[in-house]
Nucleic acid binder design. Structure first.
Length: 245
DNA sequence: GGGAATGTTCACTA
DNA sequence: CTAGTGAACATTCC
């Protein structure tokens, strides 16, 4: 479910609920005091990378889908939802297997919108600055760092590195500035392609690296390895992807 | 049944 | 104190 583009799709789908007032709210664990939501209007939906934000007048409910989160709009599954919202016109929103958090601070104090790769406030110069502050970071970890590239997940990481021919264990400081800029631009570009392809149902079909067995360029087996301090799986080709170190 | 997977945080140890 | 490890959560598929 996660990765930034999927959250944008969710945000788009719930637009009809903007302005509706919650008449009933349930939570299948104790992570959110749902009585706070009763009779409160949803003022907006926002997102920051993988965070989905339901805004109310005086607070925000943060939903993180983690690995397995799902949702249903105007329907539900057999299991009680982690967060279930019902409205007076008999419509409902249900979220499952997700992490909930109440945010009472102003969102501008909590989130650096310029770090969200899919936001129109995205600022690549700021990301470069953050990368320069951690020169020993491997690029696989840098891309997955939500404070630098909010919204990037393991799929976007693998596809962007393959397309730009950068070995995932390359060090940030060793990249040429040209290569670094290519990597950043490709991550952003692919995130939007991800969005389009997911909507078209062609996402998996278009993967060139993620979970692939061999390199489509060189037809040699991909290396599949836990990389970096994040220990997330990378799929890469030692023939065409250069290691900068 | 075991293992893996689009993710993150926290407790614990060396 | 810090870096690294393992656990925890939760779901579905093979």
């Amino acid at each position: 479910m996660p990765e930034g583009p999927s959250i944008l799709i969710l945000k788009e789908k719930v637009q009809p609920f903007k302005g509706k007032t919650v008449v009933e709210a349930t939570c299948n664990n104790k992570t959110l005091n749902v009585s706070l939501l009763i009779d409160k209007p949803i003022t907006d939906f926002k997102s920051w990378g993988k965070h989905f934000l339901i805004c109310f007048p005086d607070f925000t409910v943060r939903i993180h889908m983690m690995m397995f989160g799902t949702y249903r709009i105007n329907s539900h599954t057999k299991k009680p939802p982690r967060l279930g919202l019902r409205f007076s016109d008999d419509t409902e929103l249900n979220f499952y297997a997700c992490q909930l958090q109440l945010i009472t601070e102003p969102l501008d104090d909590v989130y650096d919108w310029q770090a969200d790769i899919m936001s129109d406030k995205w600022n690549s110069k700021k990301a470069i600055k953050k990368m320069k502050a951690e020169p020993e970071l491997m690029v696989c970890d840098a891309l997955m760092d939500q404070q630098i590239f909010s919204g990037v997940g393991n799929i976007i990481k693998n596809e962007a590195l393959f397309k730009t021919r950068i070995h995932p264990e390359s060090l940030v400081a060793a990249l040429t500035s040209k290569k670094r800029n290519q990597m950043i631009n490709e991550a952003v570009k692919y995130a939007f392609q991800f969005l389009e392809q997911k909507n078209a149902g062609t996402l998996k079909k278009n993967w060139q690296a993620y979970h692939k067995k061999e390199c489509p360029r060189d037809h040699v087996p991909f290396i599949r390895k836990d990389t970096g301090k994040s220990h997330r799986t990378s799929f890469y080709c030692e023939v065409c992807m250069k290691l900068y170190e």
